[in-house]
């Protein structure tokens, strides 16, 4: 990896010798700064350069690393006597490097999973004390991964502390993470002290409960993460401003239209009609937004993008399957909502 970087550096120095416009030179400078940050991270000599605009690290966390001080958090690493094994689910390789550095700083050992599915598989080994879960990931995002962990992993595994990390700027992001079953939440970019404090807290808490685990286990099986809704009609309600007739027409339209959309997705994929596949996926997105079906929004977007670029098209069938499965369940909920409204407005 370092060798690859060296090669890029030599290419950049060649580029710098050619005549560049101010704008081009600026871009080259930014790339070169970012590469240096990556190189330092790889070599373990990372120093945060807050002055570098768009630097690799500043994209992930706020605050100056110099300020990171165990005393500040009021909790020292020694408070957890054994070594802490962290599973980090994060798809971005640069972010992985930065988090790895931070975990070392906390005195933790970090393993990485590239997506939610991978995280679930790794967790089954039972080797971990805590999970850091990025909520925006390909294949299986953090929200779903957490729900699966809580619902389907056996015994004590399903109660592992999970801290969600999300770049979402929506005001209810933290609530969504907690609803999904995370124990705690840090926004991205995160504050390194805040993250450390939360990790210590949850590792310690989980250690305490070890003794009572077997007792609680039976009751915990029927946990409160079940029966989570796949739809969120907050946006629709905001639009309707209490006008049920409007809501009824939107809900009805989705129920009529969604099965046809799914059928079209399948048909266009089968016929390798990428242009129409892309269009259908594109047009489905606002409908998902109106119904608040967020759990397949990324899937539909990926279908659109893959169809547009005609790349990774082999991923499309499973994306369509998942979209269909979620939509079928979501439609049952929408039907219930619609029935309530219809009854009220008879």
């Amino acid at each position: 990896m370092i060798q690859h970087l060296q090669r890029i550096f030599s290419q950049i120095s060649l580029l710098e010798k050619t005549r560049l416009s101010d704008e081009q030179a600026g871009i080259v400078q930014t790339i070169s700064d970012d590469l240096y940050s990556i190189k330092e991270l790889l070599e373990g000599t990372a120093v945060v350069k807050n002055s570098v605009k768009g630097s690799v690290e500043s994209s992930l966390f706020q605050g100056e690393e110099e300020n990171f001080d165990e005393q500040n958090t009021g909790i020292s690493s020694e408070s957890v006597s054994r070594s802490v094994n962290v599973l980090v689910a994060e798809d971005d390789s640069i972010n992985q490097l930065v988090i790895k550095k931070h975990m070392e700083k906390f005195g933790y050992k970090a393993d990485f999973a590239d997506n939610g599915q991978d995280a679930i598989e790794k967790l089954k080994s039972g080797n971990y004390d805590i999970v850091l879960m990025d909520m925006q990931m390909p294949v299986l995002d953090g929200y779903e991964a957490i729900q699966i962990i809580r619902k389907h992993l056996p015994g004590e595994l399903n109660r592992i502390p999970i801290i969600a990390i999300t770049a979402s700027i929506l005001s209810d992001a933290s609530r969504k993470c907690l609803d999904a079953g995370a124990d705690d939440y840090v926004p991205k970019p995160y504050d390194i002290n805040d993250l450390h404090e939360k990790m210590e807290k949850w590792v310690a808490k989980n250690g305490e409960s070890v003794n009572t685990k077997s007792v609680n286990n039976m009751n915990k099986q029927s946990n409160d993460h079940e029966g989570k809704s796949l739809i969120d009609l907050n946006y629709l309600n905001q639009l309707s401003e209490g006008d049920d007739e409007f809501s009824i027409s939107m809900l009805s339209y989705f129920l009529e239209n969604a099965p046809a959309v799914i059928a079209d997705l399948k048909q266009f994929y089968a016929g390798k009609d990428w242009k129409n596949l892309r269009n259908v996926a594109h047009k489905f997105k606002p409908q998902l937004t109106f119904m608040g079906i967020k759990s397949v929004f990324n899937e539909v977007e990926t279908i659109e993008q893959n169809a547009a670029s005609e790349k990774n098209t082999d991923q499309i069938p499973s994306l369509i399957d998942k979209t269909e499965a979620v939509c079928i369940e979501a439609m049952k909920e929408i039907k219930r909502e619609l029935d309530i409204l219809l009854e009220k407005n008879q």
């Binding site: 639009l239 309707s240 401003e241 006008d243 409007f246 027409s249 939107m250 339209y253 989705f254 239209n257 047009k283 606002p286 409908q287 109106f290």
Partner: peptide, 16 residues
């Protein structure tokens, strides 16, 4: 061109 989007925009504007 999107049906639901038209409905949503139209609804808001008509209410105003």
């Amino acid at each position: 061109d999107d049906f639901m989007m038209i409905k949503a925009i139209e609804h808001k504007l008509q209410r105003e």
